[in-house]
């Protein structure tokens, strides 16, 4: 799968929303959100519980249709070009979402096939990703025997496997930020604290720092 350079995807923004709204019956979960996130940046979406952060992420990751407004991710419309959006994003859901009945390696293998990574590249990509996340030694162990932190690392690995342009993390937990805070040459800087929140440092080593957008759309609970 070729990773497109920034010139291929239209528009200079990684994420752009105009009047993005989601209503459930009478309840308006997300009202008129306008965000513009340039490529190469880290963006944190903050708000108290129930503010609509997850709903916003679900709309941006094509899981939920907006009731009104538009959103473009990696240059593609989340409704009309959902398939392209899915090709270029990585997503780590709020819940622990690796398959517990498979090994770490198998989790990655299945997703490498879902993302159509060519057969010749699969093994190398999987091994690289596993070793980057420090999971090589437990690659053949069933995920049900992993610790919570290991599962989180595996999920990140899963979401990076296809070299996405935009990465979404829904409520990235502590354990992960510590792990990823390891210094490294391609690390992007920590993002600062915001209004009384504990600072969140999600730097990450990216294999192709120039061609990829490093965007962390993160949700942090208030009061951490």
């Amino acid at each position: 799968m070729p990773t497109p350079t920034s010139s291929e995807a239209s528009g200079p923004l990684a994420v752009e929303t105009v009047g993005l709204t989601r209503a459930y019956d009478t309840l308006i979960a997300v009202a008129d959100v306008n965000i513009s996130i340039p490529k190469g940046s880290v963006f944190g979406l903050l708000g108290p519980n129930g503010a609509g952060k997850t709903t916003t992420i679900k709309m941006l990751t094509t899981l939920l249709h907006p009731s009104q407004g538009q959103a473009r991710v990696a240059g593609f419309d989340v409704v009309r070009q959902a398939a392209q959006v899915r090709q270029y994003i990585g997503y780590v859901p709020q819940m622990l979402s690796a398959d517990a009945d498979l090994s770490g390696y198998e989790n990655l293998l299945i997703f490498s096939k879902l993302y159509r990574i060519p057969a010749g590249e699969r093994q190398q990509r999987i091994e690289e990703t596993l070793s980057f996340m420090g999971l090589s030694e437990v690659a053949r162990t069933l995920v049900r025997h992993y610790s919570g932190g290991m599962i989180r690392r595996l999920e990140i690995a899963q979401s990076l496997l296809h070299h996405p342009q935009v990465l979404f993390l829904d409520e990235p937990p502590w354990v992960l930020t510590r792990r990823l805070a390891m210094p490294s040459r391609n690390t992007c800087g920590p993002c600062g604290s915001a209004g009384g929140l504990r600072s969140f440092s999600p730097p990450i080593t990216w294999r192709r720092p120039r061609s990829c957008v490093r965007l962390w759309l993160s949700c942090i609970k208030a009061g951490w």
């Binding site: 859901p93 899963q158 979401s159």
Partner: peptide, 12 residues
């Protein structure tokens, strides 16, 4: 419920 399905749905 476990969240696995979300990742399948976000895949192309």
């Amino acid at each position: 419920d476990s969240g696995v399905l979300y990742k399948y749905m976000v895949s192309p």
